[in-house]
Design a protein around this nucleic acid. Structure first.
Length: 272
DNA sequence: ACCCAGGCATTGG
DNA sequence: CCAATGCATGGG
């Protein structure tokens, strides 16, 4: 047994709910109570153990990936909102950590698949992509490497269910020479400015990149339809709030907009 | 057979 | 600058 420590509070089931609720994710595969993912060509299993989280096999890289997937870097201990709407939901979902995408290319391609369509439909397309271009280990497939996708044709992607446009976006990303390490050092606004230059990446995708890959505390995807519905139901008067109206809520949750977005979404899809 | 779902780029005013 | 349009799949 090789244990990894995730800071308290931490609830393994709540944190991994994301990998079950929208359907199967072949690259982050929930199976028999554990999360399977391919790291460096080897399959890793992450499961709850008596004294924390068990990661097999464990090395420096699998530990880094496991900590990302379980949202270990968030300051959850400091997240104690006094907002009368949010506070009870945070209490009810205590230990929920936003599950992060460990890989930037995976994050961006995943977001592109999810543009406009339901997450169920998005996962169906994404899984065909993962199966087609991602090397299989035991149960799970590695998320496809950009270098391998770069050699594909648009037709190979449309055959998997991508729209013509999305196929071109994904190929463009795979072929683009993006310095993700440099990007990760920039302030939020600069990351967004750089990302939005790329075809197929708008503000929504850039915001989710900040939120679910870079774990930026103030990321707030105001354009997200599900977040708009959640904010509208928790704080609104019956109609669906506009993007600008939802954006204006960000100040209220300073400096925990990212955690707040994830808690509102989780609370909304799983009402008390 | 519709309609909507965790957007985006393009086109035309 | 804002409004209208097409796109792909899966579930209701």
């Amino acid at each position: 047994m090789a244990f990894v420590a995730v800071p308290q509070p931490f609830d393994f089931e709540l944190t991994t709910e994301r990998f079950r609720v929208f359907g199967r994710d072949l690259a982050n595969l929930w199976r028999e109570g554990g999360l399977h993912r391919v790291v460096g060509g080897r399959e890793v299993r992450i499961e709850r153990a008596a004294c924390g989280v068990d990661v097999e096999p464990l090395d420096g890289e699998t530990q880094r990936v496991a900590l990302k997937l379980l949202g270990a870097e968030f300051d959850l201990a400091g997240f104690e909102p006094t907002d009368p709407v949010l506070a009870p939901e945070v209490a009810r979902l205590r230990g929920l950590r936003p599950a992060l995408a460990p890989d930037p290319f995976e994050m961006l391609v995943g977001a592109i698949t999810a543009q406009q369509i339901s997450l169920r439909a998005a996962f169906a397309v994404r899984n065909r992509f993962v199966e087609r271009f991602g090397v299989r280990a035991e149960q799970a497939n590695a998320f496809p490497a950009a270098e391998r996708v770069a050699a594909a044709t648009p037709e190979e992607l449309t055959a998997l269910g991508f729209s013509r446009r999305k196929a071109e976006y994904v190929l463009g990303l795979a072929r683009a020479d993006i310095d993700y390490a440099a990007l990760a050092k920039l302030p939020d606004d600069d990351v967004k400015t750089e990302l939005v230059r790329l075809p197929g990446i708008g503000e929504w995708t850039a915001d989710w990149f900040l939120a679910r890959h870079l774990a930026r505390p103030r990321a707030w995807p105001a354009g997200d339809l599900a977040l708009r519905h959640a904010v509208s139901d928790f704080y609104g008067d019956g109609r669906v709030l506009s993007i600008q109206e939802v954006r204006d809520f960000a100040a209220r949750f300073e400096p925990f907009q990212n955690l707040t977005a994830h808690y509102l979404l989780a609370a909304h899809r799983n009402p008390g």
